[in-house]
């Protein structure tokens, strides 16, 4: 009965969603704001990747809010799971020596890939969020592969705070030079070079460190709370 009611409701919602989106043509040019961004991104911001210049420069304030949401989620997760410490030696299987050696060998390469992705965020696809996530994946491999591994939460929170402060200071410097919050104050440089696009690489590197530290902290918090008493 409940399933029937749900199916009826879904059919209703699906029909109206379909009729709403049937009027939107697929694959046609219907840009209004996007056209302006595409035309002004290279001369105004110096970044080659338009998506990065929208995320960090045109809509930089939104990204600051997003990073704050991520920080609040990490803090809230720590608060929810606080005090849930199970027995340290329950029925986890020991990682095999292949996994341990592989984790140790792979971790620097994964961190290098993540750092490459967020340093070149304004030139190639990628950026701080992707690079930070890849670094967190490397930390996950370490957590899985090495039995006694525990992330250093003090170091992680220092990294995260420094990255957040860098982001805010880069914004306030714009105000100090008589411009808007998060407006570019550095020279733009040649588009296509690594050292170009003003404050975009600085902010994206800060975002990469912040996201990487937060997600690594989240994974470690989740892993260290073991199964509740049986």
């Amino acid at each position: 009965m409940k399933k029937l009611l749900a199916a009826f409701l879904l059919g209703f919602i699906g029909y109206y969603l379909y009729t709403a989106f049937a009027g939107v043509p697929f694959g046609e040019n219907k840009m209004e704001v996007g056209k302006d961004y595409l035309e002004t991104t290279v001369p105004k911001t110096g970044a080659v990747n338009t998506v990065t210049s929208i995320v960090v420069n045109y809509r930089g304030f939104d990204t600051l809010g997003e990073v704050t949401v991520l920080f609040l989620a990490a803090t809230g997760l720590g608060a929810i799971l606080f005090g849930m410490k199970g027995k340290p030696e329950d029925k986890h299987r020991e990682p095999s020596s292949i996994l341990t050696t592989g984790a140790k060998a792979l971790f620097p390469i994964i961190v290098l890939l993540g750092a490459y992705i967020f340093i070149h965020g304004h030139l190639t696809p990628g950026g701080g969020f992707q690079g930070g996530t890849i670094i967190a994946t490397g930390v996950l491999i370490l957590i899985l592969g090495i039995k006694s591994f525990h992330a250093n939460h003090a170091l992680l929170s220092v990294m995260e705070s420094l990255a957040g402060i860098t982001f805010v200071v880069a914004g306030i410097l714009g105000l100090a030079f008589g411009k808007n919050f998060l407006e570019n104050i550095l020279p733009l440089g040649t588009p296509g070079q690594v050292l170009s696009a003003g404050i975009i690489p600085i902010i994206y590197i800060a975002v990469g460190f912040k996201v990487g530290a937060e997600l690594a902290g989240v994974l470690d918090t989740l892993m260290s709370t073991t199964r509740g008493e049986e």
Binding site: N49, V51, T52, I117, P125, G126, G127, F129, Q130, T133, I134, T137
Partner: peptide, 8 residues
């Protein structure tokens, strides 16, 4: 960009 984010 979105593909890379979704993959990671």
């Amino acid at each position: 960009d979105v593909a890379l984010t979704e993959a990671a």
